[in-house]
Simulated assay, not measured.
Amino acid sequence: MEKQFNELPERRQAQLMAFDRLLTIMDELRAQCPWDRKQTWESLRHLTIEETYELSDAILENDRTEVRKELGDLLLHLVFYAKIGSEAADETRFDIADVLHGISEKLIARHPHIYGDADGRPVVADTEEQVKQNWEQLKLKEGNRSVLSGVPQSLPALVKAMRMQEKARGAGFDWDEKQQVWQKVEEEMTEFKAHFDAETGEVLDAKEAEGEFGDLLFSLVNYARFVDINPETALERTNKKFLRRFQYLEEHARADGKTLQNMTLAEMDEYWNRAKTEL
């Protein structure tokens, strides 16, 4: 049974009032602001992707102030999409309440170990792995033809590899031991190296080398999963580390009156090693 507003704790009332304020502002902007009136789902899409990456950056930097701000930006986009959805003149019309009820019903249906199954019977899921397996089985019952069909095709390749592996594991298709996965990594490395001339480093078959490199990356993602490393996060942290060190090299070389174009690799390495020590 749903509670009345005045029956809710004060904190929840404050949260709902804040959400109501955002919805009211969205209504006003959509009605009065030329820019907001012009927007469509398609025009907002690339901006939403940008906001998502900005949130990701803030999370990686562990900047709570920026996380709060970026969550606000992303929430605005979600409210904006729902506002546009409410303006349809046919049966496809929906508003933010439909969105919220929809995700609430999905969460209840996908957590039978908390809420019971469709008939109200309790379902056991004592481990995270059992929860994931139940989740994938429920999605298949809902009409998904493959456990991998929920992986967006437009995901970056590294993230997609991880998500496909996670979903395959949820269906019971996975290695038993991480040692087996590491053996696969070494096997793929050997197959990759076989497409190069050991003496000259010349690529013998570029297409085959590319395919084996893909297999090697996929197996490394698999191993990362087994040792609880998020490969996307790990690579992005390395990207940020490289960026900081390279910019250190540029700034300190410039301060010493040097340019990278006129420096030897050995000279650059001196700054690079200092950056490793100081940053």
Rank of each mutant, 00 (worst) to 15 (best):
D269Q: 09
R110H: 14
D117H: 04
L138G: 09
D176E: 15
E267Y: 03
A194S: 13
L23N: 07
K193A: 12
L16N: 14
L78F: 14
E2P: 07
D228E: 14
K69P: 04
Y115G: 08
M189L: 15
R64H: 12
M268H: 03
N273K: 05
V159P: 06
G170F: 00
R93H: 05
R163G: 07
R254M: 11
L220S: 13
D174F: 06
G102S: 04
M268Q: 12
V151K: 01
I103D: 08
E278A: 03
K141Q: 14
K258E: 10
A97Q: 12
G172V: 03
L78Q: 03
R244H: 12
E251D: 15
V185K: 00
G150W: 00
Q13R: 01
Q133E: 14
M263T: 06
S43F: 03
A234L: 08
P231E: 02
V99K: 01
R93A: 12
A266V: 07
Q130S: 10
E186H: 07
W175M: 08
Q261G: 05
M162T: 12
I25Q: 13
K240T: 07
T65I: 13
Y81P: 03
Q133M: 11
S219I: 08
L158V: 07
Q133N: 12
E187N: 05
H252R: 12
E166F: 00
T200C: 01
